[in-house]
Design a protein around this nucleic acid. Structure first.
Length: 126
DNA sequence: CGCTTGACCGGAA
DNA sequence: ATTCCGGCCAAGC
């Protein structure tokens, strides 16, 4: 928290929460991915946005409403960021069928990509 | 007033 | 594979 805030933090947080609410059960997204999926504030350079964005997303998640599936947001390494509550986050994800190996998940397998919602994991049997 | 601390990330060592 | 570091700055102590 407490890094340079977006011009309109309230509006930015709403965008983040709106996006996270769309992440399907059993899938995850990373902080940086959310940044890429949201437009930079008007007038801000893309490079600058990529520097501040991830921390803004973290800020938004720290204050997210109860109806947001916050547990589906993890870091770019496929791990759960250290903080009180991390244990519960892992438990919630495991309950959704996500498997952890050495405290991290396989993003290739679980990262949500809009447009690939229900792609079968093993499309072909032959 | 100065020092520490962040729900981060990517690149370097 | 893992650890370290810079970016960058408001709030809390």
């Amino acid at each position: 928290m407490h890094t340079t805030p977006p011009p309109d933090q309230r509006a930015y947080n709403e965008q983040v929460w709106h996006l996270v609410r769309q992440v399907p059960y059993g899938k995850v997204v990373t902080y940086g991915q959310i940044v890429q999926m949201l437009p930079p504030p008007v007038g801000m350079e893309l490079e600058e946005y990529k520097t501040f964005g991830p921390r803004w997303v973290g800020e938004a998640m720290a204050a997210c409403p109860a109806d947001v599936p916050w547990q589906r947001v993890i870091n770019a390494q496929g791990k759960i960021s250290i903080r009180p509550g991390a244990q519960q986050q892992r438990q919630l994800l495991e309950e959704e069928g996500i498997v952890f190996v050495k405290d991290k998940v396989d993003l290739k397998l679980y990262q949500w990509r809009p447009g690939h919602e229900d792609e079968p994991r093993q499309a072909k049997l032959f």
